[in-house]
Design a binder for these strands. Structure first.
Lengths: 119, 119
DNA sequence: AAGTTGATAAAGCGATTGGTTGATTATGAG
DNA sequence: CTCATAATCAACCAATCGCTTTATCAACTT
């Protein structure tokens, strides 16, 4: 069975998927509604096959789901997958920020919570 | 000069940087405070040189900054960089989610805002 | 049945990635 | 000055990435 928390492998794939400008543009386009490979390929100077592969990468990362409509295979964004990414990032962003805040308090002579070891 | 908005290239590097489990573990460790290469390398079964490269990748992505302490070069997390990533993701996540909400309204016969074309 | 449209599969190619080993640079300690 | 420590540089290697071309599959149209 698959865990409810995002696995390392899923995070690998999801972040990797978003590390490409074409795939991010596809995500941006899909945020405004589902689209077919041909529609998604239109703005780019690459072949449909390449776009098809990009979509496959996004799908394997769980960021995109696909349905069926005759010959067409419309792709749609999976917002929960994006949410999982922000959740991961925020975990460490918030920890860091609160640590900085405590440090600022110490420097300002306003220790509101016990400072933690640094280094 | 560098733009205030995150550039494509910065997003490329940042997402790519987080697409590796070792680098994500480094980020997790750094969220609890700055650390040196040796400290960061300790939990991993790879060489210090490899970890050094991973840190360089995170630094080039703007996710990590480095300071000086004698021979040591402590790395620290840059929370603003993480914030920029969540900002990018949320832009498209929220658009998608609100579109879904409108669609749900239509299906439930409670159209609260004009539905948009869906193909 | 034949043709058209939408999408994928397969094989190949140059560039990049993550890792190694070995040598080198920088700073501090004796 | 000499030695030890922390980190990086350089060269190399196997694996993967993004993309292309060619061929194939699947479903609708006439």
């Amino acid at each position: 069975m698959s865990s409810s928390t995002t696995t390392d492998d899923q995070l690998d794939r999801a972040f990797m998927a978003l590390a490409d400008p074409v795939r991010r543009a596809i995500v941006a386009r899909l945020s405004r509604g589902a689209a077919t490979v041909n529609e998604l390929a239109e703005p780019f100077a690459i072949t449909k096959q390449a776009v098809s592969k990009h979509i496959a990468v996004l799908e394997q990362a769980g960021l995109v789901s696909r349905s069926r409509d005759a010959q067409r295979r419309p792709a749609a964004l999976v917002p929960e997958a994006l949410e999982r990414l922000t959740a991961w990032i925020d975990t460490y962003r918030l920890t860091t920020e609160s640590r900085f805040r405590r440090l600022d308090d110490v420097l300002a002579g306003t220790p509101s919570s016990p400072p933690q070891e640094e280094r």
